[in-house]
């Protein structure tokens, strides 16, 4: 990833299209999707309703992963407490059973929540390719406003449909205010 790569077709990461308002952006997203692009993304300063549908983002499998994480936490907690209290170091406290479910629920609850939350957090990282400290869009001066008041679409050159000249024409037809070539 040389920052000084030539701006020939090979050194292009993609095209950055800038929009002034979210309505235009969502409309453009519909068009990009209809063109059949796969490798592209949208960047906005805040969540926009209907964005997922406009971009054709399918449901995530993350919930299933989280359920598995939660069930793992639940099993670990119960097994751990059973083994510690009833097997490894049985210790009778005020006549309570060595392994009584009520007393073990709080720890079980906490571990279930903990492992669910950790799975959700790191699962999200994994599915989103994080941690990622560098991205070609950071080179664009204009892109800084993506966290303030501008809306962006990036069409990536790695998409099989990407042809610099034709895609640039398409990008300019999307109703944005500016189109920029991003270097690798």
């Amino acid at each position: 990833m040389s920052a000084q790569a030539s701006s020939a077709d090979g050194g292009i990461y993609g095209l950055l299209i800038e929009f002034e308002d979210p309505e235009r952006l969502v409309e453009a997203c519909h068009q990009v999707r209809e063109q059949g692009f796969q490798q592209w993304d949208a960047h906005t300063p805040f969540p926009i309703h209907g964005m997922d549908r406009a971009m054709g983002i399918r449901g995530t499998r993350l919930p299933l992963l989280i359920l598995a994480g939660g069930l793992t936490g639940l099993s670990i907690a119960l097994l751990m407490q059973w083994w510690m209290n009833a097997i490894d170091y049985p210790f009778l406290i005020s006549g309570k059973p060595l392994f009584g479910l009520p007393a073990n629920i709080p720890v079980t609850f906490e571990l279930t929540v903990l492992l669910s939350a950790l799975t959700a957090f790191f699962g999200l990282w994994g599915r989103n390719g994080m941690p990622r400290l560098y991205h070609p869009v950071f080179k664009s001066e204009r892109f800084r406003r993506a966290s303030a008041d501008r809306f962006f679409i990036v069409l990536e050159a790695s998409d099989p449909r990407f042809e610099l000249q034709r895609t640039q024409e398409f990008a300019e037809s999307l109703g944005g205010i500016h189109v920029e070539r991003l270097e690798e």
């Binding site: 979210p22 309505e23 969502v26 409309e27 926009i48 309703h49 209907g50 964005m51 549908r53 406009a54």
Partner: peptide, 8 residues
């Protein structure tokens, strides 16, 4: 804001 469903 964009809506896929018409606002009733």
């Amino acid at each position: 804001m964009s809506h896929d469903r018409p606002i009733p």
